[in-house]
Structure formats: structure tokens, C-alpha cells
Computed example of a mutant assay.
Amino acid sequence: MSNKLCRRAIETQLSAWAAARAPALQVAFENVPFTPPAGAYLRGFLLPARTSSQDLAGAHREYSGVYQVSVVAPLNAGPGAAEGIADELATLFPLNQRIAVPGLTLQIVTPVTAAQGAPDSVSFIVPVSFEYRADTI
């Protein structure tokens, strides 16, 4: 249930930033039609962990997981542009930031980390991720 709210909190912030950025970046979200542009763009993925409860009454729920943003850049242009966008994402989602949406407040619980970039047949992709947690009672 609240995985949906976790997704909404993160993706609302990501979408607003990407649209306001100069140049703007398009974001491909899960199970949403998307036509990749010629330049760089982002792909967002919510990877929820198992929901847990820390009270004997069973009222508490802990929603946690990883949010991954794949920075997709043109192939054979070097890693600099994708790594620069990864740095911007680290500023957008700082450690301990709280993001509120109606019904839920989510917290970023690890620093944003960029993994090794890798090419596919047409792009160079840098996976960027952070862990989040939200508690409800």
C-alpha cells in the first residue's frame, strides 16, 4: 500500500527537478509509455524491500527499499555528462532528507551512490541509487 506513496514522493521530486533543469531531462518511469530522446535521459525504478512491523500490536509498518535512477547518455561521448548528472542527483536527494506526500513522510537513509557506468548497444548507462525508509502507524 505505501510503496505507492514512497514511489509518489520520490518520483514527484525527481520529475519536478528534471523538468526544471537546463537542459531539461525526460524521465522514463516504470510501465509508462516512453520514447527515448536523442540525448541524455533518466529511467527510474522503485525496488521495495519487505515491509516490516516493529510493534507487538501490529500497527506499525516500515516501508524501505532502494530507488535507482539510471542516467542514460549517448554512447561514445565519455562518462563525464552522465557522471555530472549523477552528482546533481546526489544534491537533489541528500542524506536524511525527508520528503512528504499526503499520508507519508519518507526519509533518504543512505547517500546517493553512482555505480560503474556501462555501455549497452546504443547508450552509456550510469546507475545511481539510494535507500529510503518510511514508517506509518
Rank of each mutant, 00 (worst) to 15 (best):
M1E: 10
S2Y: 11
S2M: 03
S2E: 06
N3E: 01
K4N: 02
L5Q: 03
C6T: 02
R8S: 03
I10S: 00
E11D: 06
T12L: 00
T12I: 04
L14T: 11
S15P: 00
S15D: 00
A16G: 03
A16N: 06
A16Y: 07
W17S: 02
A19H: 06
A19Q: 09
A20V: 06
R21F: 14
P23Q: 15
A24P: 02
V27H: 04
V27D: 05
A28Q: 13
N31C: 07
V32C: 07
P33N: 11
P33Y: 12
F34D: 00
T35I: 08
T35P: 03
P37W: 12
A38S: 11
A38Q: 13
G39K: 12
G39C: 12
G39S: 14
G39D: 15
A40Q: 04
L47K: 02
L47G: 00
P48H: 06
A49G: 05
R50Y: 12
R50G: 05
D55H: 14
L56C: 10
A57L: 15
G58F: 14
G58K: 14
E62P: 08
E62K: 14
Y63C: 01
S64H: 11
G65V: 07
G65P: 05
V66P: 05
Y67S: 00
V69I: 15
V69K: 02
V71H: 07
V71Q: 05
A73Y: 09
L75F: 11
N76R: 03
N76Y: 12
N76L: 03
P79L: 08
G80K: 10
G80W: 12
G80R: 08
A81R: 10
A82C: 09
G84V: 03
D87Y: 04
T91W: 09
T91Y: 10
L92P: 07
L92G: 08
L92K: 08
F93V: 02
P94N: 08
N96V: 07
N96F: 15
Q97W: 13
Q97T: 14
P102E: 15
L104P: 05
L104T: 13
L104V: 14
L104H: 12
L106G: 04
I108M: 06
I108P: 11
T110V: 04
P111R: 07
P111I: 03
A114M: 04
A114V: 08
A115K: 08
Q116K: 05
Q116G: 05
D120A: 07
V122N: 12
F124M: 06
F124T: 01
F124K: 02
P127E: 04
P127Q: 09
S129G: 12
S129C: 04
S129R: 11
F130L: 06
E131K: 05
Y132E: 01
Y132K: 01
R133K: 07
T136V: 09
T136S: 14
T136Y: 10
T136I: 10
T136P: 06
I137F: 15
